[in-house]
Design a protein around this nucleic acid. Structure first.
Lengths: 338, 338
DNA sequence: AATATTTGCGCAATCGGTTGCGTGATATTT
DNA sequence: AAATATCACGCAACCGATTGCGCAAATATT
């Protein structure tokens, strides 16, 4: 039962050459339908399975796409992955997923391992830490399609998929301003990452535009780990200028801020209005419901998958554009309006 | 720059045979240290990278582990995957992840694709739909390690990792009873899956043991999709016997029940007490905080990874046990106690 | 009917490592 | 010093599928 059967076995059974068997199985035009049918039927009977190792070796491609993400276990990231997987699966690609755990070293290692394992293309969302991009030159040098999503990198010739984070940051901040906030704190992730710097730029622009001061002490860079929430809230309480709005670059952190602020006696949104980012499911669970920016992760995954596959196929179309910007949307809920 | 260099190139450069190069790179004992050093250094200089396709072909293994999960995008599943990835990565294995989207057909297809792609082992958490397990015989026949986690399957010789769902269901139900509930509804997922049937058994046992009637109309099988919450709450309201406790097999659904029940004017926990399952982050966000059963996903992932790898290594130890049961824990929060 | 074209298939090289077996050189034993 | 054991490495046969080239038979052309 556990016998592995090869094209040579099939060839022998059918008294034809292995070449013909191979071509038949791949539906090569130079083979007659009659022969193909015979081969196919015997292949089915015998339970033949093509040996991917051999096929990969001679074709020099693996029908496998690699992915490096910071962390698997966030609802946003797993939603993106879910989209990527769907497309990959549809097109017969396997997906090798690895996580950098926000570490540059691990990202490097993963990039190397994936390269060695012979992936046809690589999708990356950068780690917090990453400052140096040399580990990707292996790919660019050998023309292996490389695409960044969400946390981008400005390598030349690398397509990217993201939302317009600057505009989103602007929208979020403007929303707070429109609701009457005068002194808005922004808590952001690592400013090494475009997603956060861009949102910060948007935040600043909204303040400028509304003639509000940009106070350095109101911009807080953090790893957004929720155990930092208490510290952050203490900081808010101690602030010289009374804080009346918070723009958090991440729903999970925002939700925990709400919890902590409520515990400290703040009324949301009366005393402080809060807006998050991502439209994570928790944003609708917290009371008051969290206003946020919708970040369509699934769609991003789908597009990333489609994009990389059309690059692989060499087809030129919208999907193979160099920069795809997905629309975001402000979702106003209770945490910013009475 | 994009030139691929092989062991033959190295052999030529060093005036030795490819065999020696190969053995040197693999640290074979029959090669002198001097030669190894030379080979290693030239390999480094030239940027040699072993071609995995060729290596796989001749070694007949791929250092790759396949995973099939129902859905990637749940916090529980992505946490498990995160654990698996960590171990796989540590041991130099790649992880190919695919999702069945709760469909038996897709699960079959994925099993086949993964098999063909030459994975060394397979980890599976079954789809809702799956009733037939023939698609796994390919693996068992060829002695490819196959492990089930969370949503198990009773195939012979397949190690499993899970919690004691019966006991967990019992604990959850008993907790409600202890808090005074007399008429407890249980909403469960597909009863094709052990996780749900076992919890249901636990629920029944707790009722029996406390001399409470087991009412068929109180056991509701559902796909636990949150758009069914309204329907469910309507059912609760319309119930002949006043429902004073709900045991939901899934935190996300439980949380949405709380929201909907509150909207309908129920007081939680005064009118109805609710307990969920999984200890999903949302359980601490909802107000009142949701009591639940802790289900250590990350640990499960770690153990699944370790277990499958020790099976691959042929080592016999605790990790390669045939059935691993992880401890669960009742977490009593506000939704069940005043 | 002779020639040209097309069709269908086989030969053999190739992809790049791995590994059992054998051999000459060096080291150890008696 | 002769005999035996050990060491370090090379030869060549795989692993299984792909594919350029070539050839013979079948079909079409004149």
């Amino acid at each position: 039962m556990a016998k592995k059967i090869t094209i040579y076995d099939l060839a022998q059974k059918l008294n034809i050459s292995p070449a013909t068997v191979s071509r038949s199985l791949n539906d090569h035009p130079a083979i007659s339908q009659k022969t193909k049918d015979k081969v196919l039927s015997v292949a089915r009977e015998t339970g033949y399975r093509t040996n991917k190792f051999a096929a990969n070796l001679s074709k020099q491609r693996s029908k496998t796409i690699g992915v490096i993400v910071p962390k698997l276990n966030s609802i946003f990231m797993s939603t993106v992955l879910s989209g990527i997987e769907k497309i990959a699966n549809n097109f017969g690609y396997n997906l090798v997923i690895s996580q950098s755990l926000e570490s540059q070293e691990k990202e490097k290692l993963n990039a190397k391992t994936l390269f060695d394992s012979g992936i046809d293309a690589l999708l990356v969302s950068l780690a917090y830490e990453t400052e140096n991009y040399d580990h990707f030159t292996t790919y660019t040098d050998r023309k292996i399609p490389l695409l960044f999503f969400d946390r981008l990198c400005d390598l030349p010739n690398c397509p990217t998929i993201s939302i317009d984070n600057e505009a989103a940051g602007y929208d979020a901040t403007r929303h707070l301003i429109e609701k009457g906030c005068k002194n808005i704190v922004h808590i952001t992730g690592s400013l090494r990452r475009n997603v956060y710097t861009d949102r910060l730029e948007g935040y600043k622009r909204a303040l400028y535009k509304n003639k509000l001061p940009v106070r350095p002490e109101n911009i807080i860079e953090s790893d957004l780990n929720i155990y930092k929430v208490q510290e952050f809230v203490a900081y808010i309480k101690a602030s010289k200028h009374k804080v009346d709005g918070i723009f958090v670059s991440n729903d999970t952190f925002a939700v925990n801020c709400i919890k902590e602020l409520k515990k400290e006696g703040f009324r949301i949104p009366e005393d402080i209005k809060i807006i998050g980012f991502n439209n994570d499911p928790v944003s609708e669970v917290i009371s008051p419901n969290l206003s946020t920016i919708e970040y369509p992760g699934y769609k991003m995954g789908i597009l990333a998958g489609q994009s990389i596959i059309s690059h692989l196929n060499g087809s030129i179309n919208i999907q193979s554009a160099d920069q795809i910007i997905i629309k975001h949307k402000l979702i106003a809920r209770e945490s910013t309006q009475i």
